[in-house]
Amino acid sequence: MIYIGVTGWGDHDSLYAAGTSPRDKLKEYGGHFPIVEVDASFYAIQPKRNADKWVKDTPESFQFIVKAYQGMTGHQRGDIPFESKKEMFDAFRLSLEPFQKANKLAMVLFQFPPWYDCKRENVDYLRWCKQQMGDIPVALEFRHQSWFSPQLQDQTLLFMKQEGWIHSICDEPQAGSGSIPTVLYPTNQKKTLVRFHGRNVHGWTKPSEGNWRDVRYLYKYNKKELEEWVDRIHQIRKESESIYVLFNNNSGGDAADNAKQFINMLGIEYRDLAPRQLDFFS
């Protein structure tokens, strides 16, 4: 099965009727896509009441990809509001329980920062992370090119396969050491994640100052670029049962439109989405 969606549900204006309350957007989102990435969990470990609401607001078959908290992936600078890494991981796992009980947790995404390079202490930390997450499906996305250098790529992929990590395959700008190539190699027979970040090299390399999100993911995929990925998705499906595709190119509001375009190009029709509200004046 191929599941297609976008990252977050609050900023995709093309999906919602004018005046839609932020509290109701996820309900509406579930009428368009079968999966979503939860980004709020990256900035703070979410209280269970939030996850309970999100579970109730979505169809029975809906799936969430929950992004790991920034303190777990080394993004957070300064003090972390936990006495230990173990306590932090315990709190994060507890926050996932509503998704798990509803059978709506597709995976947790560990996305590591551009400065997280391939060295022994980082490999050891990845092993520790996997142990802490137990049997929860976990995806791994790198941002430092060293993991996929010619001399280390095979070892990286073998490590991910042996440790049980789901490979997060990326389409992103090729902008030096702070980006990774597209490596079409599933490391998990059941699940593979594909994330479209756009190809805006200028935005990708812009220093992380001010509202950098306004430019980093400013990109609209054209038909030819998506057609290339139709073949790639079919290739990946030969080795992985379910493919989860997320469009993250939303600085200009293009993610939802590109996701719908890609669904049509793949000839997919999702039959168990939420009912959509009718807007007779659109």
Rank of each mutant, 00 (worst) to 15 (best):
G210Y: 05
E241V: 00
L226A: 07
D214I: 02
I233T: 14
L226W: 01
V215A: 05
P207Y: 04
N200Q: 03
D214F: 08
Y219S: 01
I236V: 13
Y244C: 13
F247A: 01
Y217S: 09
G210A: 03
V230K: 07
S251M: 06
G203P: 14
R199S: 03
N200L: 01
I236H: 00
V230Y: 09
V230T: 12
Y217G: 12
R237P: 03
R216V: 02
F247D: 01
E209P: 07
E241F: 06
Q235W: 04
T205N: 09
E239W: 05
N249T: 14
L226C: 06
H202Y: 07
N248L: 05
Y244I: 09
E239H: 14
D214W: 06
R199L: 15
D214C: 10
D231C: 06
L246C: 10
L226Q: 06
W212Y: 14
R213V: 12
Q235G: 10
Q235L: 06
E239N: 11
R237S: 12
Y244L: 14
N222S: 05
S240F: 04
L246M: 11
R232F: 06
Y217K: 02
E227M: 08
V201D: 04
R237K: 15
Q235Y: 15
V245R: 02
L246V: 14
R232S: 03
Y217P: 13
W204V: 11
L226M: 12
I233G: 10
I243E: 07
W204R: 13
Y244K: 04
L246D: 06
E225G: 12
S242K: 08
Q235T: 02
Q235D: 02
R237N: 06
N222G: 08
N248W: 10
G203F: 09
G203H: 08
R213C: 08
K238E: 08
R237I: 00
Y221K: 07
R213S: 08
K220W: 03
R232L: 00
S251A: 15
L246W: 11
V245P: 15
N248I: 01
D231F: 11
T205I: 12
S240Y: 04
D214V: 06
I236E: 00
D214A: 13
R213T: 13
R213A: 07
S208F: 07
N222D: 15
W229C: 02
V215W: 02
V245H: 14
K238L: 09
N249E: 07
N248H: 12
L218A: 15
E241Q: 09
L226V: 03
E228D: 14
N211Q: 08
H202C: 10
K224I: 10
K224D: 14
R213K: 13
K238P: 04
G203E: 01
R232M: 01
K206R: 08
D231L: 08
Q235N: 05
L218N: 15
H234G: 08
S251V: 06
W212V: 10
W204E: 02
V230M: 03
Q235R: 07
W229R: 00
R199C: 09
N249W: 06
E228I: 07
Y219K: 02
I243R: 05
E209G: 11
R237H: 10
R237M: 00
E228L: 12
V245I: 15
L226D: 01
I243V: 15
T205E: 07
N200R: 04
P207Q: 00
R216P: 11
K224G: 04
N200A: 07
V201P: 12
